[in-house]
């Protein structure tokens, strides 16, 4: 199985997600990394230390900004050149769009949200939790190339200390691929105590109803000695800072105790907190998906329960 692994990079570093997928792909035989964008050749060489025997690099300026469509052009050209059997991606905002565009371009199958991969009798099989993770589906592909998007954090990178042969490649861009342009990019700096180090996290979602309600969570977190986190929906709505966001486009956390308040439990949030020790979910909607993956489900109004809990914790600790 000749596998290409898309290696995303940011500020001169290969991202952990792609290196994790590379580590898995290396167990199937000859895995190759793919690095795109100016500086790709230097970065591609580093893939060898994480299990790649080969690394393909394209330094084209059309790949300077993190937009998906020129990357589809580049990967389509590379699949044609190499005859790859599979192209694997670690899920990200960029990678999801690239993978789906590539599937459409090559008339190839895409399986997403994979939490494991295996080679069974020479055939690639993916494990995909579906329907709010209530069922675990074995998925396959009918033909080549097999395109797979791996769930965030599914595989850890493994440093093998090997080296990869770097090969440069070129591609011809489609005219529609360059139409979307990046006109501004803002980096978010983290500030305040890090949610990644907290042993207890009190997290809030849209069910809080208003940004002001975060003060309820801050008081509870203070009483518990923990930190406050938020979902993408409320961060995007400007209710709470980006540095506190848990989930696919935010941080992965695994505290001893995670108290989810007014969080519906979208998969993008779940992937960032499912490693937590004990998960308590408070939500007024008994059908909220988060109740499918918590240890203690509390159906009720968080605006009543949280302040009461804060008082009880304070008097218990006094």
């Amino acid at each position: 199985m000749r596998v290409l692994v898309f290696l995303e990079h940011h500020e001169g570093q290969l991202e952990k997600g792609g290196l994790g997928v590379l580590a898995k792909a290396a167990t199937f035989g000859n895995a190759a990394g793919v690095v795109l964008g100016p500086g790709a050749s230097d970065l591609a060489a580093r893939a060898g230390a994480f299990g790649a025997v080969k690394a393909y690099a394209c330094d084209d300026d059309a790949l300077a900004v993190p937009l998906p469509q020129p990357r589809v052009d580049a990967l389509a050209a590379l699949v044609e050149k190499t005859g790859a059997d599979a192209v694997l991606f670690a899920a990200s905002v960029l990678a999801a769009d690239v993978a789906a565009g590539l599937a459409a371009r090559l008339d190839a199958g895409l399986n997403w949200d994979l939490t494991d991969l295996a080679l069974v009798d020479g055939e690639l099989i993916g494990k995909r939790p579906a329907l709010g993770d209530t069922v675990l589906v074995d998925v396959g592909w009918k033909g080549s190339p097999r395109i797979g998007l791996v769930r965030s954090g599914a595989f850890d990178p493994v440093e093998t200390g090997g080296s990869a042969e770097v090969e440069s490649f070129d591609f011809a861009a489609e005219n529609f691929s360059a139409l979307a342009t990046l006109i501004e990019q803002t980096q978010e700096e983290s500030s305040g105590p890090s949610i990644e180090d907290a042993e207890i996290i009190v997290a809030g979602g849209r069910g809080l109803g208003s940004p002001e309600a975060f003060s309820l969570l801050e008081e509870l977190a203070a009483a518990l000695g923990g930190a406050v986190a938020a979902t993408r929906a409320v961060v995007d709505a400007g209710w709470y800072p980006y540095s506190t966001q848990v989930g696919q486009t935010g941080k992965n956390v695994s505290p001893k105790l995670y108290i989810a308040c007014g969080i519906s439990g979208a998969i993008q949030h779940k992937v960032g907190m499912q490693g937590s020790g004990t998960i308590i979910a408070i939500n007024k909607d008994p059908n909220a998906p988060i109740f499918d993956f918590c240890d203690i489900s509390v159906v009720g109004d968080l605006h009543q329960i949280v302040p009461k809990l804060t008082e009880l914790v304070r008097s218990n600790r006094a």
Partner: peptide, 13 residues
């Protein structure tokens, strides 16, 4: 739009 690293503003015809 939000990405893993912050916000992008993207324009297209």
């Amino acid at each position: 739009r939000q990405t893993e690293h912050g916000y992008d503003v993207i324009s297209a015809p």
